[in-house]
Computed example of a mutant assay.
Amino acid sequence: MARQATAEKRPRRERGSINPDDIIKGAFELAEEVGIDNLSMPLLGKHLGVGVTSIYWYFRKKDDLLNAMTDRALRQYVFATPYVEAKDWRETLRNHARSMRKTFLGNPILCDLILIRSALSPRTARLGVQEVEKAIASLTEAGLTADDAFDTYSAVSVHVRGSVVLQRLREKNRATAEGPSDIDEAMAIDSDSTPLLALVTEKGHHLGAADDNNFEFGLECILDHAGRLIDEAKSTPAKKSARKR
């Protein structure tokens, strides 16, 4: 069942004893208990033991507070994500994707702030763009064109984010206990009308589920395609040289 939006009231702080860092830290603590959707300024005031006006002094509305939380969460996420390296692009890009997914799946608050809400300050947005630039530069050094490097990294990013968001929505649907949590649970599969589906689902395959098997299959397809593009680029100069002879 979903947790109710309640917070234990702490001893009242002295006026002026709270600062933005305290508020952001408290907001993360409270979000761990009640979720981002149920986070509110009055509830946060009770959690911190201050009047709600003390919070509004620094954050005029909830969106401002969520933006500050997102900035902090993204800095933590970028720091924890391994870089893509040209000399071993396939393995490092694979690890990069797996690490992104693991980080978000392990922290629902991070997922809600960065992937679902997606509101970033200009400074944090620039930081994110710079990290993407580094990854694309490594892929071009590995042999992809700038266009193909961009499309490859973008495809990996969409694949990771889509997988995580689907899993997060599944968890939220299950928490409400209102019907099936995703398309996989809603489908009626029997061996008479859908024998192939019945065969593979009995082996543990899931249609449309953001599980490890589907994630890894999709990731390898993207990496395989990028590998073919690099191989084609390497063979093109040799073909041109042979024709000149």
Rank of each mutant, 00 (worst) to 15 (best):
D22S: 11
D22M: 14
D22F: 06
I23A: 13
I23H: 14
I23G: 13
G26F: 02
A31N: 05
E32V: 07
E32D: 15
V34A: 02
L39Y: 04
S40Y: 08
S40H: 06
P42E: 07
G45S: 13
H47D: 07
H47F: 03
L48G: 03
G49E: 08
G51P: 02
G51V: 03
T53N: 11
S54E: 15
I55V: 12
Y56V: 05
Y56H: 15
Y58H: 10
F59M: 03
K61C: 13
D64M: 00
N67D: 03
A68D: 02
M69C: 02
D71Y: 03
D71S: 06
A73M: 13
L74A: 05
R75A: 15
Q76I: 04
Q76P: 00
Y77Q: 13
V78F: 09
A80T: 11
Y83P: 02
V84F: 05
E85C: 01
E85L: 12
A86F: 06
K87M: 04
K87H: 12
W89Q: 10
R90P: 13
R90E: 15
L93H: 02
L93P: 07
L93C: 07
R94F: 01
N95I: 07
H96P: 07
A97D: 06
S99T: 14
T103Y: 11
N107K: 10
P108I: 04
L110C: 07
C111I: 06
C111F: 02
C111D: 13
D112E: 14
D112R: 06
I114H: 08
I114L: 06
I114Q: 07
L115I: 08
L115V: 07
I116V: 14
R117K: 14
S118A: 15
L120E: 08
L127A: 09
G128W: 10
V129F: 09
E131C: 08
E131F: 12
K134L: 11
K134Y: 14
A135Y: 00
I136Y: 00
L139F: 08
E141I: 01
A142F: 02
L144A: 09
T145R: 00
T145E: 06
A146Y: 11
A146F: 10
A146K: 09
D147K: 02
D147V: 00
D148A: 05
